[in-house]
Design a protein around this nucleic acid. Structure first.
Ligand SMILES: [Zn+2]
Ligand SMILES: [Zn+2]
Ligand SMILES: [Zn+2]
Ligand SMILES: [Zn+2]
Lengths: 172, 172
DNA sequence: CAATACATGAGAATGGATTTCATTTTCAAT
DNA sequence: ATTGAAAATGAAATCCATTCTCATGTATTG
């Protein structure tokens, strides 16, 4: 499985005047609303989490933030990601023995379709599957609180690659 | 979450004559068919895996086997469970940060509905969800190879308990 | 039985995640 | 601005499931 897209830490838009434009929902507000103290570390983490690509690992976040603030520690990243997860600002996915992956949860609910050979992740949502899940839970008298649906397969590109390989071998 | 049902290691049916009755599909055959050497450890593990309750952890298996053969090691259990998993004799489920759970895979495919508060696991299969998964994969050009569907909720018993608690608190 | 390839157990190593704790930082009350 | 209590931090220690290492043991084959 390939290494994939590195995260981008957007350089903060320090205008010529030294003024700073407000982001749509200021990180400060999010942190305050959680009843936490506002620190540069938390702001940095939030910025990466909100603006970088989805499905990042704690390591990804750490490596991105450390470029700007070299003194940040793993612990802080893990701690704050945990907090954000508990507060449902972030969704945590732990599959197999892999490191946990996170994503900003503001977007609509969705599940994942992952390529076994290149690691590409496609998001999808299927109203009908969701409804059937509710139905299943209900049938057993359960109150459904959450679910994990992860599909695994081979993406079109990787399927193509495999066909090419096979062709090459046949013409040898 | 409670500790749950301990595994049972069936005492082997050593007849008065010293003869041993054959199990439906002898463990020996399974091991030989895998191209592996037949050892008491592997036989012990197989017996537990096949006759104990489902959804066991490697630790469960170890603890059960160790009673009979005190010299078995973790490594052997993990190694053989891995082998059985690779050979699709056993299904491995790794969710959250919890230890992996295994189950003998001879039974039909199914997914799981787990109680968040007591840990009870209900198995279900839903033809329609399975079909929809295929459809989703296809829509993105993926060849579907596997999937993980785990539902989480609160089981009927635990829901009842919560109601009782609430009542008690109200009448205080 | 001997030869050999394979399997084993003990313990060390791994790696992600969490905890600990001494130090630093935030921020509300002065 | 100053202060102090509470909260947050980073470094390192620790946790814990799992895997690896390797010296020793054992199953299998002829
Ligand atoms: Zn791919
Ligand atoms: Zn996603
Ligand atoms: Zn329950
Ligand atoms: Zn099951």
């Amino acid at each position: 499985m390939d290494k994939s897209s590195p995260l981008q830490l957007p350089t903060s838009n320090s205008g010529t005047t030294g003024r700073t434009r407000k982001a749509s929902v200021p990180g400060k507000k999010i942190i305050r609303d959680l009843g936490l103290k506002v620190t540069t570390q938390r702001l940095d983490i939030l910025e990466v989490v909100r603006s970088g690509p989805n499905h990042f690992t704690a390591q990804d976040v750490f490596e991105t933030v450390v470029k700007r603030s070299p003194d940040i520690g793993f612990a802080t990243v893990y701690r704050f990601l945990r907090t954000l997860t508990d507060a449902s600002f972030v969704t945590e996915i732990r599959m197999g023995g892999m490191p946990a992956r996170y994503e900003w949860a503001a977007k609509d609910h969705h599940d994942h379709l992952t390529c076994n050979s290149c690691g590409k992740i496609v998001e999808f949502e299927n109203e009908e599957i969701e409804r059937l899940q509710e139905k299943v839970a209900l049938r057993f008298g359960f109150l459904l609180t959450s679910h994990v649906l992860e599909l695994y397969g081979v993406c079109p590109e990787c399927r193509q690659k495999k066909v090419s390989q096979a062709d090459a071998e046949n013409s040898r």
